[in-house]
Design a protein around this nucleic acid. Structure first.
Lengths: 194, 194
DNA sequence: ATTATTTCTTGATTCATGTCAAGATATTGG
DNA sequence: CCAATATCTTGACATGAATCAAGAAATAAT
């Protein structure tokens, strides 16, 4: 179960058996069934989650009670409200299981400890934050520059299996659109392909 | 001239005189007059710039020749195309001086060297990337959740002097809108205040 | 299997914002 | 100081997407 996690780290840094032992002592495992929450708005985000199996989503709810999906996290990804986690501030984010999932949780104190006990983990996080920043920058430019249709086809080309795993209205939300509009966009795409 | 830069670093890490000497040897200074470019699309981003004085902006141009402003960088801020800088890939970003500006440039080799020669600099960048990621996340959620009017008033509350330094059509572009729409939004805000 | 729930589609309508165009103001350069 | 350029405003109009509503299809629960 921790192997997924170690594999992930090993793509960026080198992990000794001693390092792994330290991790085993300081992380915990959690299972969530579909629709269960890892974090609900109003709480403080107490841990960073690594998804071993399944999929989570984080989303915000606006004044009109519409959900806006910030992130999907399938196996091999991390998810948290980083701002709430770092600042120990109240979160306005919800993190929910989209499928039955298995997670590895790293608490705040564990995270701080691990970054000094396993220097490679510090480096890993450096790369992680830097990469997350670059990805988010791309997402922002896509939102500015591309139509919903273009964003949808681009998403499918990067994550072809997402339509099998995530209901369409959630994809619409992630793209910054509505279920109705995405449905019509898909119809248009099918017509093109004939 | 380097003092602005050292002050910035000192807010996050402790810098010795020896550290400062190393920086002095490895960074360079550049002046840009208004409308001059630090980076043009098609080039590779060769350095990260710290703005000592003045202001820069980075922007993309879409198929219809509309500009989309990604970032403003007044004094005390960094600007670059991080993806192009790291990957040494061709950039599609333009970085231009909005005012006459004084910059400190850190080249790729200098950046890599400095992160090992001055360990604090590594830590500084860690914090910088992490913070940049969190800020961008907030910007994205604002775009999803707020109307243009709300985004505009929020921007003014955080950067009250921006209207004095940046033409309105650039603010419109930064907010993901058009000059005409922002002009009307402002009119509506003024009416409210009477 | 049958019912209940969730998800997706489709049509009709409204609304916010973009686009085009022209004139007014302000700023900059010679 | 005047001309040239850049910026901002306003009106008329077009358009893409949101909203509302209702039914079809698919999935999950009993």
């Amino acid at each position: 179960m921790l192997d997924n996690f170690f594999n992930k780290l090993s793509k960026t840094i080198t992990l000794t058996e001693a390092d792994k032992a330290i991790f085993r002592q300081h992380v915990s495992v959690k299972r969530l069934r579909k629709h269960q929450y890892l974090l609900q708005e109003g709480e403080v985000c107490k841990s960073v989650a690594f998804v071993c199996k399944g999929m989570l989503r984080s989303y915000l709810v606006d004044k009109k009670n519409n959900e806006h999906i910030i992130q999907f996290a399938p196996e091999g990804w991390f998810i948290s409200d980083l701002n709430s986690f770092i600042m120990e501030d109240i979160s306005n984010l919800n993190i929910e299981a989209v499928e039955d999932s298995e997670l590895i949780l790293i608490s705040k104190t564990a995270h701080v400890y691990l970054e000094t006990a396993v220097p490679g983990f510090y480096k890993f996080n450096y790369m992680q934050y830097r990469g997350a920043y670059m990805s988010l920058q791309k997402r922002l430019t896509d939102i500015f520059m591309l139509s919903i249709e273009e964003r949808y086809t681009k998403l499918l080309s990067i994550y072809p299996d997402i339509t099998q795993r995530v209901p369409q209205h959630m994809i619409a939300s992630y793209l910054g659109s509505t279920p109705e509009t995405l449905s019509r966009v898909r119809k248009k795409i099918f017509v093109k392909k004939d």
